[in-house]
Amino acid sequence: MSAWPETLAAHAGRTVTTVCHCWRLTRKDGHVAGYTDHDRRLTVDATVFAPQTGLAASEARDTLGLAVDTVDVEGALSSDDISDEDIAAGLYDGAAVETLLVNWRQPDDFVLLRKATVGRITRADGRFAAELESLAHSLDRPSGRFVSRACDAELGDARCGFRLDDPAFTGTGAVEVVEMASTLLVSGLDAFVAGWFALGVLTWTSGVREGRRERVEMHRRDATGTTLVLQPGGSGTVDEGDTFTIVAGCDKKFATCKAKFANTLNFRGFPHLPGNDAAYGYVVDGGRFDGEPLVP
């Protein structure tokens, strides 16, 4: 908790106060928004806090030690800034939330009460409730790498090292027909074999979803043309003519890394990790113990 300004501390000691709560929300995509339980718009610390969202907070508690503290924030889904589609798309998952106590008569008098991240979000009857997890909650989460056969790098990132600017691994296209919310008949990808973009990333360059990145679940070709199936949950509708860029997909397997990307030196998994049958096995007569990998 931050130190209180002397003027705000003195004001809080009065019988009647003019304080309110403000929440500054910073999403992972960099979008910043401000909300307040006051009935008027406030500008605090260079951020505009809007009242029309109807946000309200539950009881908050700060405890000593490493205990995880949480507080719930409720609001209406009908606001212009927070929509059901954006919440379903995960745009607010892991967002940073700063809670401020502000003297609304003198907005320069404020204190940062706590910093938290958005955890579980529940939706019902046109409203949402977001659980704000304290910074101590990160100590309760597993960190570091997991030992598994699959690669744990994202294709094209610094750990992977593969350059996606090769035209053989990127494409551009446009939506021809919207068969379902996540099933699209597209043009511009006829030069690529079926499955080339499965598990890849599609970035919209026009339309309602412009700038959004979505994971491709399936890429198939048949007599009707090229079809892309996106992971469900994207916010905003897709219309015919919307354009996009797309990069090849990777299923995180060593064989795919070798055959499709020739990038085995940067593979971030453990492809020769033996399974439980080998780990719990025992020496038998006639067994081979020449040091060769158990998994090819």
Rank of each mutant, 00 (worst) to 15 (best):
L112H: 12
H272F: 09
T117N: 10
Y92C: 11
V68G: 12
V73Y: 04
C160D: 01
S143N: 13
L101M: 12
V283I: 12
H11R: 02
A89N: 04
D69S: 14
P232V: 08
S83F: 07
E133G: 00
R120V: 11
L64C: 09
C257W: 03
A10N: 03
H272L: 01
A248W: 00
G34S: 02
E6F: 13
E131I: 01
S235Y: 13
T203C: 12
G54E: 03
T245E: 15
R61C: 13
C250S: 08
H219C: 07
D39T: 02
I82F: 14
L294C: 07
G34I: 07
M180V: 02
S78L: 04
D251G: 05
D251Q: 06
D166Y: 04
T17N: 14
G195T: 06
K258L: 11
G207K: 10
Q52I: 00
L184Q: 02
A279R: 14
E59S: 07
Q231E: 15
W104M: 03
G211Y: 01
T237Q: 10
R14E: 10
A194K: 01
D152W: 12
L64F: 13
A194F: 01
L113T: 00
P51S: 09
V201D: 02
L25Q: 07
E154H: 14
D140I: 09
V147H: 02
R288S: 12
Q106N: 14
D37Q: 09
L164S: 07
R163V: 13
V44D: 13
T18H: 15
G275E: 13
T36Q: 04
G34Q: 06
E214T: 15
V16Y: 14
A10M: 05
G287C: 09
A248C: 06
A124D: 15
P5M: 04
G13F: 06
G234M: 06
G34W: 00
P293N: 03
R41M: 11
G233W: 09
S79Y: 03
T170I: 06
D140L: 14
R105M: 07
E98T: 14
A181Y: 13
V118N: 05
T264H: 06
L228Y: 03
A12D: 07
W4T: 07
F110D: 14
R127P: 11
D290H: 06
A153D: 08
G119T: 10
